[in-house]
């Protein structure tokens, strides 16, 4: 009997030792990019460092809400991906932590200016420019001219051929609205949205849905981020990508460390790693064609060449603030969405 007890105790201790060894380092990783990219980032970081990663994928709006709800008892460590606005908002509310990475001198200017505007509480990891894509087969079948500018989309022959997301439910579409206001001025920007409204066949819920529908041949022109359009073209769908001639707005995908993170050291390791060229090259494996923030990271040949695109000086501070956002959306709701099509 005594023997049995000793054996049991011994094996328990061995079991315990193996358990505590296994749970040495861990990281809770909130991810707001596409699912397969998130998975790949988590697995690759585990392989690179041996740190256990517990990944949760949610949209950037949801993640922001979650971080705010958990603020007195933070459960997450690092938040990677998703459009910059909620990251800036989190920085403003003090939900994220200041950190200056040693990797910073390898980054593009836009990534650093994103960090500086938020007191180094966030940083740019990739960027993507707004534009549109069209299904070349359908365009030819309907003998429509090839569009090249934003204003082209207002032509009456495109009636029922254009699709964009609803700005109320999609960050992409809100970026579109804010970009038009910045390109054309508020009055003309809304005039543009009204003209576009009569050509729109559907306001989708999700931001990238219009170009996916175009890829399948269920829609002709979709207003989306260009990297989403490139993805369809690379997957074999007859999609052509357009960088509008008037210039265009863009998003900066961001990363932040959560203030009061339980695994702060691991979070910093992840942060530095995610800014390295090796980590940013992973994007190509999952067909994410955003422009990486590290100058030494590879860009795909199919990706839009950012130096050829006329980017506007997008005011993230103003158009990311929740008051301006509410005002523009309400104006769009009241003046644009109610018009007959």
């Amino acid at each position: 009997m005594k023997n049995l007890t000793t054996t049991l105790a011994g094996s328990l201790i061995a079991f315990a030792a193996s358990l505590s060894a296994a749970q040495a380092e861990k990281l809770t990783f909130y991810c707001s990019a596409q699912e397969d990219w998130c998975q790949l980032m988590a697995r690759s970081f585990e392989d690179a460092t041996g740190i256990d990663v517990n990944m949760t994928r949610k949209s950037s709006g949801e993640t922001f809400a979650q971080i705010r709800a958990e603020s007195s008892n933070p459960k997450g460590d690092v938040w990677w991906g998703g459009t910059g606005d909620p990251h800036l908002q989190a920085a403003e509310e003090g939900l994220t932590m200041e950190y200056v990475s040693p990797m910073r001198d390898q980054l593009h200017d836009w990534a650093i200016s994103q960090a500086e505007s938020a007191g180094n509480k966030t940083i740019g990891i990739y960027s993507g420019a707004l534009g549109y894509g069209y299904n070349s087969d359908l365009l030819a079948a309907n003998s429509l001219p090839e569009p090249a500018c934003w204003k082209d989309l207002l032509k009456p022959e495109y009636k029922g051929h254009v699709q964009m997301a609803n700005p109320n439910s999609s960050g992409t579409a809100y970026t579109t609205l804010a970009s038009m206001v910045q390109i054309f001025g508020e009055d003309d920007g809304f005039k543009f949205m009204k003209g576009l409204h009569s050509n729109i066949n559907q306001y989708t819920k999700s931001g990238s849905a219009p170009i996916k529908a175009a890829g399948r041949g269920e829609n002709t022109i979709g207003i989306v981020f260009m990297h989403d359009a490139v993805k369809q073209a690379v997957s074999g769908f007859p999609v052509k990508v357009v960088a509008p001639c008037e210039g265009t707005g863009y998003e900066i995908g961001s990363m932040s460390i959560i203030d009061g993170a339980r695994n702060e050291e691991e979070a910093k390791k992840f942060y530095d790693w995610a800014l390295s060229p090796e980590a940013q090259n992973l994007a190509l494996e999952v067909n994410a064609f955003q422009v990486p923030s590290n100058k030494n990271a590879e860009t795909s040949e199919s990706a839009p060449d950012m130096s050829q695109i006329k980017l506007i000086d997008y005011d993230f501070k103003k158009y990311g603030s929740s008051d301006e956002r509410k005002r523009l959306l309400q104006k769009w709701d009241e003046e644009v969405s109610v018009l007959p099509q």
Partner: peptide
């Protein structure tokens, strides 16, 4: 669904 998962949250 979209009231909860979309940008409106």
């Amino acid at each position: 669904f979209f009231a909860i998962v979309g940008a409106q949250y």
